[in-house]
Computed example of a mutant assay.
Amino acid sequence: MFNNTNKILDSLCYLSILFLPVLFPLIVWVICSDNVDVSQYARNAFFLHLVPTILAIGIFFAIIFMGIHPAIQFRSWIIVAFIGCVIIIDVILFIYNIVKGIKCLL
């Protein structure tokens, strides 16, 4: 029974990218710190969810900086390329989290 609960928690940590990214794995990581297996999966899921969040914040500030600074306005293609790279990374991490969550259940 305990092993099945661990599998479900491990899977939910990765699948929380769909409903509560960053926060759910962090809560599980803190609450289950005494259980090494669950804590490890929660920590990995937390960092995998944190990367897209940091990249999105980076895009936000880059767009604001590009809009404010007049000397950089002609280089808007850099922002478009950056946004494209971030979207590709986010999609790859999203799919990876879903696959990893399903693997934890099996």
Rank of each mutant, 00 (worst) to 15 (best):
C13K: 02
V38G: 09
Y14G: 04
C13H: 03
L50I: 03
N44C: 09
F61C: 12
I8W: 06
V22S: 12
I17V: 09
T5M: 14
F82I: 03
A62M: 12
S39A: 14
Q73A: 04
F24D: 11
I68D: 00
Q73S: 01
I68H: 00
I95M: 06
G84V: 00
L48A: 14
N4M: 14
K7M: 07
L48F: 15
I72V: 04
K103Q: 14
F19I: 05
V91T: 10
I79E: 12
K7R: 03
G58S: 13
M1W: 10
G101F: 02
G58V: 00
S16I: 04
F74M: 13
S11L: 05
G58Y: 04
F24C: 04
Y14L: 07
V51N: 08
M1H: 11
C32P: 00
T5H: 14
L93T: 03
V91L: 13
V38D: 08
I92R: 06
A81G: 02
I102F: 10
F74A: 14
V38A: 11
C85I: 11
G67C: 01
F61M: 13
C13G: 05
L50M: 06
A62G: 13
L23C: 11
A71W: 03
L50Y: 04
Q40A: 13
L23Y: 08
L18Y: 00
D90R: 07
L48P: 00
A62L: 13
I68S: 03
L55N: 08
I83V: 13
N4E: 15
L9C: 05
I92N: 09
N3I: 06
A81T: 01
V86D: 08
R75V: 09
M1D: 10
M66L: 11
F46A: 09
I87Q: 11
L105F: 03
P25C: 04
I88E: 11
P70A: 00
P70G: 00
N97C: 13
V99I: 08
L93N: 04
K103M: 14
G84N: 01
V86P: 06
V36H: 15
N97R: 07
F46R: 05
R43F: 06
T53S: 15
I31D: 10
P70I: 01
I92W: 06
V80W: 05
V86F: 00
V91R: 07
F61H: 10
I87E: 12
I89G: 09
F46V: 01
I72Y: 02
F24M: 09
N97P: 03
D37A: 13
P25N: 05
F19D: 05
A56F: 11
Y41P: 00
D37T: 11
L12E: 09
T5F: 14
I54Q: 06
I63T: 12
G67I: 03
I92D: 06
I63N: 12
V86W: 03
S33N: 15
I27W: 01
I83H: 07
C85V: 11
